[in-house]
Computed example of a mutant assay.
Amino acid sequence: MTLLVLSSLLIIGLVLLLAEVLFVPGTTVVGIFGLAVSLAGIVYAFLSFDTEVAWWITALAVILNLAAIVYGFSSGVWNRFSLKTSMQGGTFDGRTDSLQIGMVGKTISDLKPIGKASFEDDVYEVKSENGFITVGTEVTIIKIENNKIIVK
């Protein structure tokens, strides 16, 4: 019975430590609990067996736990959680480069005060300077800053 309890404690501790390293990295709760269960198994070994056997059990538990940690870091599991791409774009990505102040276009939706307008067969989201503008009205660009187009 003591071997069953001892092996259960050590195996559960090892499994929890492996789970921390492989499946839920960064939480540390599972890893700390796994180390605590392994330490409980070692304490149980010292209480139940001779000192020499308990030291052999301790050495075996330490080697297996260290092997689990080394395996977790060398297995490449961290690559699944790391960012491999970078975001492209931003607030100003050149969509309005073909537009100029003074260009005339036509609204294709009501501007309340934001809506859509067409300039040279391209559709842009625009904002009216003075509130509501109905669909089909000619508008003129008065200001362009970043991706915001202000019309009147």
Rank of each mutant, 00 (worst) to 15 (best):
V24D: 11
P25W: 02
F23R: 00
K148H: 10
S8T: 13
T96R: 09
L60F: 12
V123A: 11
W55R: 03
L18A: 08
L14P: 05
S118G: 01
L10P: 06
W55M: 04
I11K: 00
T28S: 15
L17C: 07
G90P: 05
I144D: 00
L14S: 05
K127I: 15
I150C: 07
T28F: 10
D110L: 00
I142D: 02
E125V: 13
A40T: 14
G34Q: 11
L64V: 05
K116C: 01
N65V: 08
S7W: 15
S118C: 08
S38I: 14
A117V: 07
S109M: 03
L3G: 09
S82T: 10
G41L: 08
L18F: 08
M103S: 03
L66S: 02
P113H: 02
T27W: 12
V135P: 03
A19I: 09
V62Y: 00
V139K: 12
D122M: 13
A40P: 11
S82V: 10
I149A: 07
K106R: 09
S128P: 08
L9F: 13
Q100M: 08
E20D: 06
I12N: 00
P113I: 01
K84S: 11
F92T: 10
I69L: 07
L4T: 11
T107L: 12
L6D: 07
I11S: 10
V53A: 09
S7T: 01
L16T: 02
T27H: 04
D121R: 15
I141S: 07
L39I: 11
L10G: 01
V21T: 05
E129M: 10
G94P: 02
T137H: 12
T91S: 01
S118R: 15
V77D: 02
V24M: 08
E138C: 08
V21Q: 08
L64I: 09
L47N: 13
S74F: 04
G89R: 02
I149G: 06
Y44N: 07
V70L: 13
V139I: 15
T28N: 10
I133S: 11
M87Q: 03
E125D: 15
L60Y: 05
E145Y: 14
T2K: 04
E129N: 13
S48L: 05
R80S: 12
K148G: 02
W78S: 14
